[in-house]
Nucleic acid binder design. Sequence first.
RNA 1: GCGGGCGUGGCGGAAUCGGUAGACGCACAGGACUUAAAAUCCUGGGAUCGCAAGAUCGUGGGGGUUCAAGUCCCCCCGCCCGCACCA
Length: 855
Amino acid sequence: MTQYPHLSIEKKWQDAWEKNECFIAKAPKPGQKKAYVLEMFPYPSGRLHMGHVRNYALGDVVARYKRANGYAVLHPMGWDAFGLPAENAAIKHNTQPKSWTYKNISAMREQLKSLGFSLDWSREFATCDPEYYSQQQKIFLKFFENDLVYRKSSRVNWDPVENSVLANEQVVDGRGWRSGALVETRQLNQWFFRITKYSTDLLDGLSELDNWPEKVKTMQTNWIGKSHGAKVCFTITNTSQKQQNIEVFTTRPDTLFGASFVALSPEHPLSSELAKNNPKIDAFIRKCAQLGTSEETIERAEKSGVDTGLIVTHPFDKTKTLQVWIANFVLMGYGTGAIFGCPAGDQRDLDFARKYDLAVLPVVLPEGKSADQYQIANKAWTGTGTLFNSDFLNGLSVEEAIKVALSKLKELGAGETTTQYRLRDWGASRQRYWGCPIPIIHCHDCGIVPVPLADIPVLLPDEVSFETPGNPLDHHPNWKQTTCPKCKQKAVRETDTLDTFVDSSWYFARFCSPRSKDPVDSAPANAWLPVDQYIGGVEHAVMHLLYARFFTRALKDCGLLDIKADEPFDGLFTQGMVTHETYKDSSGNWVEPVNVLRSDTGLTTKAGKPVTVGAIEKMSKSKLNTVDPAVIIEKYGADVARWFVLSDSPPDRDVQWTESGLEGAARFVSRVWAEVLRVSKEPVFPEQETTDLSKNLIKTTHKTIKLISQDIEDLGFNRAVARLYSLLNDIKKATDNDPEQIAARRFATESLVLLLAPFAPHLAESCWEALGCKQLVAMTKWPEFDEKWLEEKTLIIPVQINGKRRSQLSVAFGLDKAVLQEHALKDPDIIKSLSGLKIVKVIVVPDRIINIVAK
RNA sequence: GCGGGCGUGGCGGAAUCGGUAGACGCACAGGACUUAAAAUCCUGGGAUCGCAAGAUCGUGGGGGUUCAAGUCCCCCCGCCCGCACCA
């Protein structure tokens, strides 16, 4: 077989595309449709991984397809370049985050280019470019002006040995990952974006996102967590404290009669107040603080608490009293930071009650249970039912009881209805160097003073020291020293930088006018936004996507973004991960796939040690089960790598990287190339339609054009790939050498090449050239199908008896029920199978199926 | 713990509306070509029973709805993603 010479060819076409400016986005002409195709931009870790290849290959199919269909396409690329790894690398390798990051960007840019993605590189930027983050500082100032950003005290993980703030991922089992010290929590003044101002709008907006996966919308809905309920006031009877009442939030006021305790969050102001005079409470709160700030760890921890000794009265019955506890599972960030516990109706409350031997009184009776026998063991009943043990609520449904309880609370002045959101304001302060500096000055006399626009950008210092732990900006000998813009006295700069999620919350808009002196120019923004197809990992389903939706709204409200669209991303697609088998040697060390040798006796390392195969997992450095795209591109070519990640697995599911799958992809590329060379040597005949053979191939080709176009629209690339395999097989099978057949074969082959182009663009260009076509495929129109070839005159209908296929009929299209039934009952196989049975009923679905029910 | 998703041959998957389960690819087996091997080409593969015709079973497990269930409903199991300072 003719080997496809990928190395020389791929570079040639990449240069040709660049020379012809094929992928430079040009504003849509009047009447021209646009497509903004965007994949989530990468963090410049230094090397491309297979997840990137998949992500960008998916987007590239869409971009190339849209271009071939006459759309003006914007398909840009940039770098999510700020963040913690650069600082870790700086410490580890004794470099500077800046040089490390830009070096990585250069390396990854070359790798991306070698894959031949149809990107508009003229718009490239990195979020750590001063041109980018200075615009972000302007946005921050505008948000500050519009009260969309503010300062408040909030908890952070604190490493007492390193004297620095830890990210949640840096807290391992309650200890700092480097120092091993027990983590404490500290209160710090930090900057917050007022995302909760848009809670309702962000929630309502979801319903218009028809081209988003349902699961992502559900996750965002739950994250925002709108719930209707009540604030209920419990009066403390035995206190010397100033605070006389405890306010709790509940969505289930119907279960108030089942309340057996009230619980405060360890961070509740009253808890801290009580801790002052009670060492036991103080110790408990300190212990809770060691869990860190992650909601997951807090909720996973075994339920525990401490009795405060306080007693409150029940709002509905003053003679009933409840103990007040402090419990580790009550979150300060939600509701009022206090709850009432109804153990029968909430699993956490029940676990808590069992542990501390508190009363468990069921108040909701599930349907079909008897009131005098119903008991709660170790499973709370959270479903519907009828209220009992509940005084004036007895006999009501849960839904009715909620209403009645609410009006009673209002009547007694013991509570009010409220709407509560789970969504919290976005804490965006980071006590780190490698991020966008917050353009604020702290003045002793004037307080918080924004940096004047004329003084923007506030640039990061290039060289910082990581010798002392903590925030290098704070330690820098002179960076933070400045003068107050108002009073001209000595003042200091804010040393917090912004969360990198801020950088990625508006980059898609910046791509419309990447070199502008303003954050986003209105004409190009209106021409390109919203993003028509956004593609990235499902791990970003909530935070990144919600922050970007918030920013779009906030930017519009501040007048910094002038577009008609309300939402940044019209279409969203979440792709699956790239996985690989894991390998371990006899000493239990992970082994890289490149070091595993396969032989008849099993797997060994290159050194000959036996290797065992472990689970198939997401490619990761820690498990060493990665495959370097650069190695694959060198050996097989970019098209093979692209073809592999697009084959077989549906894009939203995980794809398992296998050597054999890769070889299959390589084989396909060679087969296409060989077949095209064969066809290219044949004479060119005008298209004719005479023989059945040629008709079939032409028909198959038209059908394939239609189906693949649809597959690409639906992002079902694995199906498109399967159809391309089929079409190639059909072309290869057509071996007759009469002019009709040769003409049909040429038509099918040319179509194949064009259909292939979004998936394996270099191969397509080479084939196109071999077939004698002068224009680049990248500039050629998508093939069209003709409906007249798709009309089916006859079809095969299965005939079932009792739901089991027993025969089939070849019939004309569109026959009516009676005729079909008659045909079916005359069928010899059916007559045979029906012997001894009595026909009960015949179901006929025209053009689909016939099912005979018989006994 | 809470929220979301996924589960189909030896393997990846197809079946888009409740209507022939297993398209297409990989791996495997047999054959052709070759001095031989590789590559390539052709053919065959869900399982069980059967010489065959064919029959029965079969979409993680258990129930249910329906003439008909991979698809809809309920329960369970396993794996994956997110949980607000990783990106």
